[in-house]
Computed example of a mutant assay.
Amino acid sequence: MNESETAIALSVQLLISGGLMLALTLTHSLGLIGVSKLLHLEPEVLKRRSLDMRAMITMSTLGTLLFVLHFLEILLFAIFYVVVGAVDRFESAIFYSAAAYSTLGLSFGSFPEEWRLIGAFEGLIGFILIGWSTAFMVGTMNRLRE
């Protein structure tokens, strides 16, 4: 691959990564809004609750729903990897995506070079979204304790 082809391939990966980042950020925003409405996590409602069994159930449900949201986001990347032919088996795509998203750091030896940068960006996106979910849970818990 010459320098021009390398620059084009890099540009394509960066554009796709940006698009996936936008899609996942939107998905996460909508997911947090949906979870908040489903569990009635409005600040004024939470302030009237106390730290009791109901609050523990709410927080457990919140954690479960956030896990499901993150899994859906991992699936979006996995579907992308299968569609572009980077991985031939869906199970392998989910494994690679989960490892990248969670910043586990496992490398996937046979992963095509032309898509590896997207896996690295998936790690950055996952790190940010997991942090966002953590902040959301901490904020919810703090409102319950007020």
Rank of each mutant, 00 (worst) to 15 (best):
V83E: 13
I8S: 11
P43R: 01
T61S: 11
M141V: 11
M56D: 10
S97R: 09
L129W: 09
V12D: 14
G63I: 05
W115E: 08
E44N: 07
L10Y: 11
A86T: 05
V68E: 00
L30I: 11
N142M: 14
L24T: 08
L22R: 02
L66W: 04
E114T: 15
M141P: 01
P43N: 03
V82R: 15
M56V: 09
D88K: 02
G19W: 08
G109M: 08
E122M: 12
G63V: 04
E44V: 11
R48G: 10
S110M: 10
G139C: 06
E113R: 07
L24R: 05
T140N: 06
L72D: 08
S4V: 15
R89Y: 02
L46G: 04
S102C: 11
G131T: 05
L69M: 12
R143C: 03
E122D: 13
E5Q: 15
L51Y: 03
L75D: 07
F136V: 10
T6Q: 15
F111C: 07
E146T: 13
T27N: 09
R116F: 09
A98M: 11
E3H: 12
I128N: 07
T61W: 00
I16C: 03
R54C: 00
N142S: 09
N2S: 12
F136A: 06
K37T: 13
N142Q: 14
E122Y: 06
V35P: 02
M21D: 10
N142P: 04
G139R: 11
L26H: 10
R49S: 05
T25P: 03
A98W: 06
S92R: 00
I94N: 01
L24I: 06
I130Y: 04
D88R: 06
R89A: 02
T6C: 13
P112N: 09
M21H: 07
F90A: 00
R48W: 01
I94E: 02
A100I: 14
T134R: 01
I128T: 15
V35T: 10
P112T: 04
L41Q: 04
W115I: 02
L129Y: 10
V83C: 13
I33W: 13
S102N: 09
A120I: 13
S50E: 11
V138M: 01
S92A: 11
L51F: 09
L124H: 01
E91S: 13
R143E: 06
I118F: 04
P112G: 09
Y96C: 14
D88Q: 08
L72K: 04
F121V: 15
M21K: 08
A23F: 07
I94T: 02
A99M: 14
